[in-house]
C-alpha cells in the first residue's frame, strides 16, 4: 500500500492543506517510511480483540437541560480575523 503523489494530493485536499512539488515528494517519503513502520502491527492477531476508543468506561454523560451562562457575542467574536454586525465574516460563498 505504498503512498503516491496522487494520494498525497487527495489527502491534502481532505485536510485543507496545500503543498508545492518538493513538499509533496518529501511527504510521499515520510508517509511511506512511517506507514511501513506501522505495518509492524499486522504481526499481532487482533480479530477477536475489541477496539479501545477511550480508556474510561464512560458513555453518554448528560447534564441538566437548564440554561446557564455563556460567552457574550462580543467575547465570542473578539478573536475573529474579520467580523461585523455580530457575525464572523468570510469570503462570499454563494454567487
Amino acid at each position: 500500500m505504498a503512498v503516491t503523489v496522487h494520494d498525497v494530493r487527495k489527502v491534502a485536499q481532505l485536510a485543507r492543506l496545500k503543498f508545492d512539488g518538493a513538499e509533496e515528494r518529501r511527504l510521499v517519503d515520510d508517509l511511506n517510511q512511517i506507514l511501513t513502520y506501522v505495518a509492524a502491527l499486522d504481526e499481532l492477531p487482533t480479530d477477536d480483540v475489541e477496539p479501545t476508543a477511550h480508556v474510561l468506561p464512560l458513555s453518554n454523560v448528560f447534564r441538566e437541560d437548564a440554561p446557564h451562562g455563556a460567552l457574550s457575542q462580543e467575547a465570542a467574536l473578539s478573536n475573529a480575523p474579520r467580523s461585523g454586525h455580530g457575525h464572523f465574516r468570510v469570503p462570499k460563498v454563494i454567487e
Binding site: 491534502a12 492543506l17 506501522v38 499481532l44 475489541e50
Partner: peptide, 25 residues
Amino acid sequence: MLGTYALSAGYYDAYYLKAQRVRTL
C-alpha cells in the same frame, strides 16, 4: 496528513481500527 490518511476511506480498518485493537492489548 498521516492522521487524515489513516482515517480516510479504504484505510480506516487497516490503520486506525487496527491501532485501537492493539491499544486494547
